[in-house]
Amino acid sequence: MTAAQAPAAHVTVSVNGEPRRIDAGLTLDQLVSTLSPAPSGIAAALNEAVVPRGQWPETRLGEGDRIEVLTAVQGG
């Protein structure tokens, strides 16, 4: 039995392979907005699953989450 702990103020997640400390409870759309001013042409995966853009605002990030934010580049 442990006493209820106060929620952590920060959590560590992985963003495109780089560890990053973020405010606990930060949402995916808030995180993406720190990477790109406009979300057009961008997709995000959370722990190897696509998160449709419409769900970004309600997707809260937690300790250890792996986020990949991709866009189109020259190739092929």
């Binding site: 495109n16 392979g17 990477l35 790109s36 042409g41 961008i42 997709a43 990949e68 934010v69 991709l70 866009t71 189109a72 580049v73 020259q74 190739g75 092929g76």
Partner: peptide
């Protein structure tokens, strides 16, 4: 025309898209 999907790099200017 094809494009590849890669990690977003905020420092890259100009877009193939």
């Amino acid at each position: 025309t094809t494009v590849a999907m890669r990690r977003l790099d905020p420092t890259v200017a100009g877009s193939v898209l």
